[in-house]
Write a protein that binds this DNA or RNA. Structure first.
Lengths: 207, 207
DNA sequence: AACTATCGGATAGTGTCGCTGTCTATAGCG
DNA sequence: CGCTATAGACAGCGACACTATCCGATAGTT
């Protein structure tokens, strides 16, 4: 497959593919001459992964690069998870967070095996800190429901990863699932919000 | 409160506050002279809301503007939800989505009262379409778990909104909850992933 | 062999975004 | 009186994700 075909098959402009090659997001094709390269189906697939991470997952090119490197490198499952999580999470210093916001998170994470520097723990603390700054410290009916739902989803994530056969496929699901899972849940939450709102407040249909 | 105090109390630079004023994100203070204005606690609070939407929620300034206008305008709950959802969701054309991806979503949304143009429904279809393009059409063990979790979270969202006393407070929770709820869930999912991974694959602790 | 389209590679330019810095003419304040 | 602060206008900046242009060489067509 040549550049033009790769471009039309993926829907990505040639100039953009060249840009991805420059940035190292996409592997160079197989050289067939001093100024010719051939691309295979794996390039097409990689291009689709890239567009998914950028467009659907909302990642920056730099973040997509890190995440793709994690797919390619042969690390353990837990380590790959860690890289994917750190890449898609905001960089937070544990010391920059209010202790009571952290305590509020830990309260809800009671019994979980989570490292103190887990990016999710810190990001959750920041969200709760924001609510506190807005004068809404009591979310004891709300946050635990999120934690329970997150646990169920994480279980499903691991089930889905287990269902993959080979290591490469598992790794890819870790990375893509981490990124696209956020988008999927957010989307389904919107649909569920409309449903629950309709169910609670709309006039019941005539019999 | 004068500009300098508003700045130091909120931690937002004066130049940035001026920028927010220019953009209409923040209401002008009460004029006390041709080149003097006074700001009240409501400006400080609004500034905190803005920073929460931008930094924690990851919204653009334009999106934050729309969302803040939704807080201020006196619309019904369902309508406010709609504005908040459309603002934070990608703009998708229903016709640009693959019918089988949409069918896959509707399959999992079975029995829900959701309009065909619900932004969440369309966004979910796009995520599933991306998985399909990567050759993973069978996610029948995965997506339903997300839907169930989203339903539970949406229920908690509505409970929390119901718990607010006045209309203004409800509206604010709709908007802020929509934006920060995404961030909160994503964060807790990361923590839960580490927990489940540790629980499943780590050596059990010695007795 | 001539010719045209395409290629890889390098470099420069574009548009958007979220600020940030500078300027001017006032005004408050000690 | 003099110093600092302020509102408002406007230009500039750095990051980002492309996009466009040019070059010399080669591939495929005739």
């Amino acid at each position: 497959m040549k550049m033009a075909q790769l471009s039309s098959a993926s829907g990505v402009p040639v100039a953009t593919i060249k840009y991805y090659l420059r940035e190292g997001l996409l592997q160079p094709g197989q050289r067939s001459g001093p100024n010719q390269s051939l691309y295979g189906p794996e390039h097409l697939r990689r291009l689709r992964v890239i567009r998914g991470l950028l467009d659907v997952g909302g990642l920056s090119v730099a973040a997509a690069h890190q995440v793709i490197d994690a797919i390619d490198s042969d690390l353990g499952l837990a380590h790959t998870f860690d890289i994917a999580q750190r890449t898609v999470s905001p960089q937070l210093e544990r010391t920059a967070l209010a202790p009571d916001a952290l305590a509020q998170v830990d309260d809800v994470l009671d019994g979980w095996l989570v490292s103190p520097d887990n990016p999710g723990r810190l990001a959750a603390a920041r969200v709760l800190q924001t609510f506190r700054e807005l004068g809404q410290p009591d979310l004891s009916g709300w946050v635990p429901a999120y934690a329970a739902a997150a646990l169920a989803v994480a279980d499903a994530d691991l089930d889905e990863i287990d269902a993959r056969a080979d290591r490469e496929s598992k790794t890819e699901m870790v990375v893509i699932g981490t990124v696209l899972g956020d988008a999927l849940f957010a989307a389904l939450r919107r649909a569920a919000q409309e449903h629950v709102t309709a169910e609670r407040y709309a006039a019941p249909p005539a019999p």
